[in-house]
């Protein structure tokens, strides 16, 4: 899949994210839009996970620790053929398995998340397991930047370092916002890269909304022999829709009719522009 195809997919994914949030009347809009390029590259280029091999343990694994961005995950799994669009549209409906956080009742979901600060340690467990069996698989996990305030994250990092987990790839969705406001006001994280480095991890920063940059950085894994990998993915929360970008209220705001039409319109224009480039 070439860069342009991936970029086009990102736009389609953003439209689906907005559609399912709009139609189900609930969702974490901005966080899903901020991380979708990362999921796009992972599932279409890197992970090699699909419905045919998902039930085997012998494959790469992905845990979405920032579970609230479930619409991004459900959207990509739908595109990968884990279920139909019709099934996806039961999101948040009574008795549907498609609830507002990742659950293993939905085919393709690796781990139940939603309470922040759990995914990394579970990923560490998986990565240690692969090392014990000398299997060549990697474990990827996506964390929010606000999520880094949970102390359990730092416990996991220390274990990752101890066991030299160069098969662990920790991606931080560094959109600089959480529910209350800017991460640097709520609970300052900087200097973030240095924090990870001092914990013994190997860190790279990329533009987390550029599929090209993301592909390149994943190709460099493992960054260093015997060191766990951290990718600080600098993203824009709400990326792709002008009036959602960097607006803190859109953390869990649902678009109304007008906003939905406008957002889809903007994304359609981006698609035309991309095709004409």
């Amino acid at each position: 899949m070439n860069i342009k195809t991936l970029q086009s997919k990102s736009i389609e994914y953003r439209k689906t994210i907005l559609e399912i949030i709009y139609k189900s009347g609930a969702g974490h809009t901005a966080g899903s839009l901020s991380c979708i390029d990362i999921l796009n590259v992972l599932y279409n280029k890197i992970l090699k996970v699909d419905p045919s091999n998902f039930n085997s343990n012998d494959r790469n694994h992905y845990i979405q620790s920032k579970g609230h961005s479930v619409e991004a995950l459900y959207t990509i799994l739908c595109d990968k053929g884990f279920y139909t669009k019709e099934q996806l549209l039961t999101l948040n409906k009574f008795n549907s398995h498609f609830i507002g956080h990742p659950t293993r009742k939905v085919f393709g979901v690796e781990h139940n998340t939603g309470a922040l600060g759990h995914g990394l340690s579970v990923a560490v467990g998986m990565a240690i397991g692969f090392k014990l069996d000398t299997k060549p698989y990697s474990v990827f996990t996506l964390l929010g930047d606000g999520e880094l305030s949970e102390g359990s994250v730092w416990e996991g990092l220390m274990t990752a370092n101890k066991y030299n987990l160069d098969n662990l790839i920790i991606i931080i969705d560094r959109n600089r916002l959480q529910i209350t406001g800017e991460t640097e006001n709520v609970n300052p994280l900087e200097p973030l890269k240095e924090k990870f480095t001092s914990f013994g991890l190997s860190v790279k920063e990329v533009n987390g909304n550029s599929v090209e940059d993301l592909i390149n950085v994943f190709k460099e894994v493992p960054f260093e022999n015997k060191k766990p990998n951290v990718i600080i993915a600098n993203t824009i929360k709400g990326k792709g829709v002008s009036f959602i970008e960097n607006e803190v209220v859109w953390h869990h705001k649902v678009p109304d009719d007008d906003q939905y039409t406008k957002a889809i319109d903007e994304l359609n224009k981006q698609k035309i522009q991309l095709e004409n480039d």
Binding site: G67, I99, H101, T103, T113, G114
Partner: peptide, 17 residues
């Protein structure tokens, strides 16, 4: 200690909440 959105207040957000 004030536990907000208790019980099943979070509805579709599911068991974690």
């Amino acid at each position: 200690l004030v536990g907000i959105s208790s019980g099943v207040s979070y509805g579709q957000l599911g068991s974690t909440h």
